[in-house]
């Protein structure tokens, strides 16, 4: 394999892609995957979506006995749903941006630099996810109470920011770890400055993983409720808080189904966008090596 090393992994040559494409004009594997996923992923979602329009649907009917837009009207005419959506997007964006700003440099340090307590500190981030929240409620609440952050936008941002630390450090560390060091050394040998090495060798290789971390963080933060309940109530009500209070222990599945379908479209677009940066080679080409 050593003889292959000099080939930069990110300049997946268009010819290579074309060669694969030529070999398989019809993407049978893709169609097989698509069919499988359609059944496994889409079927439950479609059933949920149909519920959003169903007013009465009882076994053994294949389609609902009575359909209507009643639940849609009732849900979407609520002022708080729109307010919550906007609030959620603001909080989530703020958290993700701050988290990336403080965590990515830290992840780089953990992956590349040597400093006292490195392994210990790195391992310690585990406690963000591994220790159940209920044991920490009183202590956390006390801290936020003394700072007068209960029920505020920034209080929720702070508590959710802490929740992102693990993903935003551990995932990028594996990215910086996986960067081919020989390429960096080669670039440095031919006289590239450290900054140029970072921008044109290290970052492009790590970027797909960094995007994965950002995407995971964004979505997880958007749907996070445990911390948001504790710190946000009674003033801050995010979208999933509204959703869960509709869904949980509600006799009608419809409210939840409506809100869920309502969030479908933006999610699907986000997914397709993610493909551009994370998926095959579109991204690498964009950066041009």
């Amino acid at each position: 394999m050593t003889d292959l090393a000099p080939i930069s992994p990110f300049d997946a040559s268009p010819s290579a892609v074309a060669r694969i494409a030529r070999r398989a004009p019809v993407d049978w594997t893709g169609i097989a995957f698509l069919t499988g996923l359609a059944v496994v992923i889409l079927l439950p979602l479609v059933v949920t979506a149909v519920w959003a329009f169903a007013e009465v649907w009882r076994f053994p009917a294949i389609v609902p006995q009575r359909m209507g837009l009643g639940y849609w009207q009732e849900t979407l005419s609520r002022h708080d749903v729109w307010q919550a959506l906007w609030l959620s997007l603001s909080i989530t964006t703020t958290v993700t941006v701050i988290s990336a700003a403080i965590c990515f440099p830290a992840a780089y340090a953990f992956a590349r630099l040597d400093f006292p307590g490195r392994n210990m500190l790195f391992l310690a981030f585990l406690s963000v996810q591994a220790f159940p929240k209920f044991g920490l409620i009183i202590a956390t609440a006390t801290i936020f109470l003394t700072l007068h952050l209960i029920g505020t936008f920034w209080g929720v941002v702070l508590i959710q920011l802490v929740g992102t630390l693990l993903y935003m450090i551990w995932i990028p560390v594996s990215a910086f770890q996986g960067v081919d060091r020989r390429l960096e050394e080669a670039a440095r040998d031919v006289g590239a400055s450290p900054m140029r090495v970072f921008w044109s060798i290290t970052l492009p290789q790590a970027l797909p993983t960094l995007f994965a971390a950002i995407l995971i963080t964004f979505v997880n933060t958007f749907y996070e409720t445990d911390a948001a309940w504790l710190i946000g109530l009674p003033n801050v009500r995010t979208m999933p808080m509204v959703m869960i209070s509709f869904i949980n222990n509600a006799l009608e599945v419809q409210y939840g189904a409506v809100l869920f379908v309502f969030l479908w479209v933006p999610s699907f677009l986000l997914m397709l966008a993610a493909r551009r940066v994370m998926g095959a080679d579109a991204f690498a080409k964009g950066f041009g090596g």
Partner: peptide, 29 residues
């Protein structure tokens, strides 16, 4: 990883979709 094209994009979008479904709704579905 080794495929491009619209089918691959759809496969990815589908496979990542459960990420946007809160657990409570997974249970209901």
């Amino acid at each position: 990883r080794f495929r491009t094209g619209s089918i691959a994009a759809l496969v990815q979008a589908l496979a990542l979709f459960p990420m946007f479904v809160p657990s409570v709704l997974v249970a209901y579905a």
